[in-house]
Amino acid sequence: MTGLLLDVENLKASYGRAQVLFGLSFRLQAGEITALIGRNGAGKTTTLKAVLGLVPATADRLLFKDRSILGVPTYKIARLGLGYVPEDRRIFTDLTVEENLEAGRRSGGSERAPWTPERLFRLFPNLAAMKGRRGNQMSGGEQQMLSIARTLMGNPDAILLDEPSEGIAPVLVQAMAEAVLAMKAEGVAILLSEQNWAFAAAVADKACVIERGEMRFEGAMTDFLGNEALRLQTLGV
């Protein structure tokens, strides 16, 4: 798959009466990793949820594979090939690793080889050793990998990946970054939300910097890294 996968123009969202997004525009190209960078509370998570219809949102344009997904039920968006790995992972803690994967299974329309538990266990060797373990007996990092694997079972063309490096052991951060790059190598595009910008810098092709619900920068990751003034202004580093 090539070309523009996700095309967002002037996205706004609120939680009840609290407005969180004030008109964001950004794009995700097939096979690329775009990182939404910003501090805690900047609106990154809300952006991902708004795209999926999990929070009420408005937009001038919200296209996935050239189809408008504004107001479309979440499950239909998922079936179009847009996967979601939430920040709090939300694996089914009463279900075993294998059952979690089964819950995510969905044959995709793409020409790529479908993901199977066996392939995923190769990608995440930690999970292979705990197939029968329940979600509530797994560490944060293991839960994170399971959450990603579960989403891959739906054979998505793109994944919204929320804070994959948060709250996991440092030794797993490395493995996580490698897994993200491996997914990209398999042709899965990723919209990544990260406040750990070192992680984002290590994996992403493009950067979108969000501050207080507004877009401050959209461009190549290298441009963002090279722009010290912008980095200082938006991240304070």
């Binding site: 951060v173 490395q174 790059l181 406040q195 910008w197 070192a198 290590a202 304070g236 580093v237």
Partner: peptide
């Protein structure tokens, strides 16, 4: 607080774990 290196690290995440990735594909 702005100058404290531990704080910077806390907010920037554990960069050590990512060291080998600098030569990323």
């Amino acid at each position: 607080i702005r100058r404290d290196p531990r704080v910077r690290e806390a907010y920037l995440g554990d960069t050590h774990g990512l060291a080998p990735l600098t030569a990323r594909p």
